[in-house]
Simulated assay, not measured.
Amino acid sequence: MRKRMGGVAMITAATFLAFYSLPSQKEEMAQEVSPHVTEDQVSNLLNGDAFVPTNQVPITLVEIIDGDTIIVRVKGKIETVRYLLVDTPESKNPKKCVQLYAKEAFLRNSELVKSGNLTLEFDLGNTEDSYGRLLAYVYVDGESIQGTLLKERYARVAYIMNPPYKYLEQFREDEGLAKREKINIWSRLNFLTNLGFNGCLP
């Protein structure tokens, strides 16, 4: 009994309860459900805590910078997190104007990161950028924030610096579907270029 969230197999409460209540069948059921389920995770779910996949790291939101960057507390340390593989219009870069749709991307990102439990997932060889910011996939309650921003036409796929990436093809698919609707960042001719976004608020 699984459902897919953010590309990670999530275990339902019913499965956990069955797993927890039948000690003699624990090993057999764990193999059927997931080889990564631990008794601590079972206990957390039964106590009402959020289930965190083993390849994700829980974080606490500290500040929202813009549509694709946040400041968080992770493992007791304050870190700036740049969303891996996506780019939204600029609103805080002192070298650039406030670009079209930057405020909308910021507001949508704010809604998302404040709507549930946040986690990070890192990609092999792509964990930090040249500014010392963490590069990561970011999830809220198991749903990809990058994926949502792409689907809702607030972000583009960008900064493919060190492939392969785990979710690049999925993001490209999300972006391809978004382009067809010609909404938000895809609504203006020549707004998107190979160098980024080309357009400022009046």
Rank of each mutant, 00 (worst) to 15 (best):
N93G: 04
P94T: 00
K96C: 04
K96M: 05
V98E: 10
Q99H: 11
Q99E: 13
Y101I: 12
A102V: 00
A102P: 02
K103H: 09
K103R: 08
A105C: 05
A105F: 00
A105Y: 06
A105T: 02
F106K: 11
F106L: 05
R108V: 05
R108P: 03
R108A: 00
N109Q: 14
N109I: 01
N109H: 07
S110I: 02
S110Q: 08
S110A: 07
S110D: 08
S110M: 02
E111L: 12
L112C: 01
L112E: 04
L112T: 01
V113C: 02
V113G: 09
G116S: 03
G116V: 06
G116P: 08
N117Q: 15
L118M: 08
T119R: 10
T119F: 13
T119G: 06
T119W: 13
T119C: 08
L120A: 03
L120G: 02
F122D: 03
F122P: 08
L124R: 13
L124H: 13
L124W: 06
L124Y: 14
N126K: 01
N126V: 07
T127V: 08
E128M: 15
D129I: 11
S130M: 02
S130H: 11
S130A: 11
G132Y: 06
R133N: 12
R133F: 12
L135F: 13
Y137S: 09
V138L: 11
Y139H: 11
V140E: 00
D141I: 06
D141F: 09
D141Y: 04
D141L: 10
G142N: 06
G142E: 01
G142W: 08
G142Q: 10
E143Q: 12
E143F: 07
S144Q: 02
S144W: 08
I145L: 13
I145R: 04
I145E: 02
G147Y: 05
G147N: 01
G147F: 04
T148P: 01
T148S: 13
L149P: 01
L150D: 07
K151D: 06
K151W: 05
E152T: 13
E152K: 10
E152S: 07
R153I: 01
R153D: 15
Y154D: 03
Y154V: 02
A155I: 05
A155F: 10
R156K: 12
R156W: 00
R156A: 07
R156F: 00
V157S: 10
V157T: 05
V157F: 05
A158K: 03
Y159D: 09
I160V: 15
I160N: 00
M161W: 10
N162R: 15
P163S: 05
P163A: 03
Y165K: 04
Y165S: 10
Y165Q: 03
K166N: 08
K166D: 13
Y167M: 10
Y167E: 10
Y167K: 08
L168V: 07
E169T: 12
E169Y: 10
Q170M: 14
Q170S: 12
F171E: 07
R172M: 15
R172A: 04
E173A: 14
D174Y: 15
E175Y: 01
E175R: 11
E175T: 04
G176H: 02
G176S: 11
G176A: 11
L177W: 14
L177F: 13
L177T: 08
K179C: 05
K179L: 07
R180E: 12
E181V: 06
K182L: 11
K182G: 00
I183A: 06
I183Y: 02
I183V: 12
N184F: 05
N184I: 01
N184S: 07
I185D: 01
I185T: 04
W186Y: 15
W186E: 07
